[in-house]
Amino acid sequence: MPTPTDTKPAHRNWRRGLEAGLRYREREGGLEVPYDHVEGAYPLGRWLSDQRRAFRTGQMSGERAAELEALGIVWDTADAGFERNLGAARAYYELHGTLAAPRHATALDVAVGQWLTNVRRPGGLGKDPVRAERRAAALAAIDEDWNPAERGWTVDWQRHQAYLAQLLAEGARLSAIVPGVTRHGEDVGRWLTTQRRDFDRLTEGQRARLAELGVKKTPRARQTPAKPAGAVPAGRGAAAFQTGIQALAQYREREGGGVPGRGHVEELPDGSSHRTGVWVVNQKQRRERLAPEQLAALAELGVEWAAPGP
């Protein structure tokens, strides 16, 4: 015979919720229930949402919390989604040895490249600072270089550097890594040639990473004292050009290619803004005064007018 407590509407509703949750879990293998889901005639999704709210506000008894945990409730659905994506990131790392994934990358049927792009953005780990710190630590536990912008370089640069390190660890010789030598479809040899050529334009951190792998800049050919036309500018001009190249590379990495329109402004990792669209237009106007190395750098980043003619 039912006790007086069992006849109370609130208690009957509680038991109905548990029974509906059990049916759902047995059928679906878990208890991640959409908010609008109705199990039979019972609004299970809404009921579970109410239980999570009661748990967060301290209005739930320990006995009921234990029953829900035994049932398999997901207390924080946002964290559950993050954990699923984190599992995909871990699978990507196991294959590639880096979390510097391109935006189109997938793992375990998850668009992990786009997800990593999203979480690297300001606020991408959530508004709660404690949760954001916990999530960042989880990503760093997989790959301490998961967010290359914090180091001062792009995801594309980090991915190639990681692939170069892997090739060397597997026994490849630096002298043998020439254009055409690839890893996971990336031309590491071509990238390495560019790094050697532009060694002095890299950040101190980038040069240190390459030096650890034995990479040195390409020796410059001895030139006559007279400065030839189109020589690479020194001082602030060279620094400004390199900043433009870095901003353009960052734009292409984020957008998957292309050249920004005239009005585009790129936000750089150091917090400054760069009028990358105007900068590209200005380089075109002064094309005849650009050095071959500068034209090559622009052409490599998809600037068609910088490419050599037929």
Rank of each mutant, 00 (worst) to 15 (best):
T3R: 14
D6F: 10
P9K: 06
A10D: 15
A10I: 10
L18D: 05
E19L: 14
G21H: 07
R23S: 09
R23V: 10
R25P: 08
Y35V: 15
E39V: 04
Y42H: 15
D50Y: 10
R52H: 05
G58W: 08
E63R: 15
R64F: 01
L68V: 07
G72L: 01
D76H: 13
D76V: 06
T77M: 07
A78K: 14
D79W: 09
D79V: 00
D79A: 12
A80C: 06
A80P: 00
E83M: 11
E83S: 11
N85W: 04
L86D: 03
A88T: 06
R90D: 07
A91K: 09
Y93S: 02
L95N: 11
L99K: 10
A100M: 06
R103S: 08
H104D: 15
D109Q: 13
W115V: 02
L116H: 03
T117D: 15
T117V: 07
R120S: 07
G123K: 07
L125E: 06
P129C: 03
A132N: 03
A136Y: 02
D143L: 03
D143H: 01
W153F: 15
W153K: 04
Q161F: 04
L167M: 12
L168F: 03
A169M: 01
E170S: 05
L174D: 09
S175Q: 13
S175Y: 01
V178C: 02
V178R: 15
V178M: 03
V181K: 06
T182P: 01
G185P: 02
G189D: 01
T194I: 08
Q195A: 11
R197S: 13
L202D: 06
E204Y: 03
G205H: 12
R207W: 04
R207Y: 00
L210A: 04
L210I: 00
L210P: 01
A211Y: 00
E212C: 04
G214F: 03
V215W: 01
P219T: 09
P219F: 05
P219H: 06
P219G: 10
R220C: 10
A221P: 13
R222K: 15
K227N: 10
K227F: 09
A229K: 10
A239D: 12
A247F: 04
Q250E: 11
E253H: 07
G258Q: 10
V259Y: 09
V265W: 14
E266T: 14
L268Q: 05
P269C: 03
D270T: 07
H274G: 07
G277C: 13
W279D: 05
V280R: 09
V281N: 12
Q283H: 11
R286T: 12
A291H: 14
Q294T: 11
L295Y: 09
A296R: 12
A296F: 07
A297L: 11
E300P: 02
V303M: 09
V303H: 10
W305C: 01
W305A: 10
A306D: 06
A306P: 05
P308M: 02
P310H: 03
